[in-house]
């Protein structure tokens, strides 16, 4: 075990870079995914079939083909058609497109759950379409979106581990190296999974905080309790759980 710790200490300096690569993929992928989601999500609910049709096709395509296939296809096959990208770019593009397609459904669904009356009130004030969306509808939809987007963000982080197989030196790569150094699978992978868990936890806090903030803007926020921000699942309806009692 002390050998393990020594190896871990030796490997620590490179952990920073590895975490950075994983974070770059996760956040880069998330930003791209959000752009894709907004374009496709709004595209999928326009009245014009010429916009709606292609949006739906793209969404279903990236949801339907596996992320694994997509990332390797972009990495191995696309260069043969003359599009060569750096591995990091490949990872970000694949993660962004794949999770963007999922997030597009979240965006569409949340926009649709904003009451029609809000659109109507905005029309009655003669606001233009873009203005209605930006100032009235989106801020309300945003609060609904965040929990589901938080979920996707964690999925995206987990998916980023694939990047190890397209030569990137991410956290998985670091775990693999630690395992080679120590020959102790349990130790190295245990440490590695904890690192992923910590990253996921921090991202979840961030999203919980964003959700509380969005809710407060809608005047629905009670002052956020620490539990809401630091808990992994915000807003668990404790009162319901209490009514129903324990396990049989």
């Amino acid at each position: 075990m002390s050998d393990d710790l020594q190896a871990l200490v030796d490997r620590l300096p490179s952990l920073g870079d590895a975490v950075l690569v994983t974070l770059e993929m996760t956040l880069g992928g998330a930003v791209l995914a959000m752009v894709v989601a907004l374009v496709l999500g709004f595209g999928a609910r326009t009245r014009s079939l010429w916009v709606r049709g292609p949006s739906r096709v793209v969404i279903e395509f990236f949801r339907g083909t596996s992320l694994v296939v997509q990332i390797f296809w972009i990495f191995y096959v696309l260069p043969q058609f003359g599009f060569k990208m750096e591995a990091l770019a490949v990872a970000i593009v694949a993660l962004g497109l794949n999770y963007g397609a999922y997030a597009a459904e979240v965006v569409r669904g949340s926009i649709e759950s904003v009451p029609t009356a809000q659109w109507e009130a905005a029309t009655a004030l003669n606001l233009g379409w873009f203005h209605k969306v930006r100032r009235v509808v989106f801020p309300q939809a945003w609060a609904l979106m965040i929990p589901q987007l938080a979920n996707l963000l964690i999925q995206l982080l987990k998916g980023s581990a694939l990047a190890f197989y397209i030569t990137l030196h991410d956290v998985f790569w670091w775990i693999d190296n630690l395992q080679r150094d120590t020959r102790d699978t349990f130790f190295s992978y245990g440490v590695g999974l904890v690192i992923y868990f910590v990253i996921a936890y921090v991202l979840t806090w961030g999203m919980n905080w964003a959700e509380e903030r969005a809710k407060r803007r809608l005047g629905r926020g009670t002052r956020p309790r620490l539990r809401d921000v630091f808990g992994l699942k915000p807003g668990v309806p404790t009162e319901i759980a209490r009514v129903k009692g324990g396990v049989a």
Binding site: E120, A121, V136, G219
Partner: peptide, 16 residues
Amino acid sequence: RKRVGMVFQQFNLFPN
């Protein structure tokens, strides 16, 4: 439309 205004049954204020 600029010349027309409306008040709704359910108020429809913007909660944000």
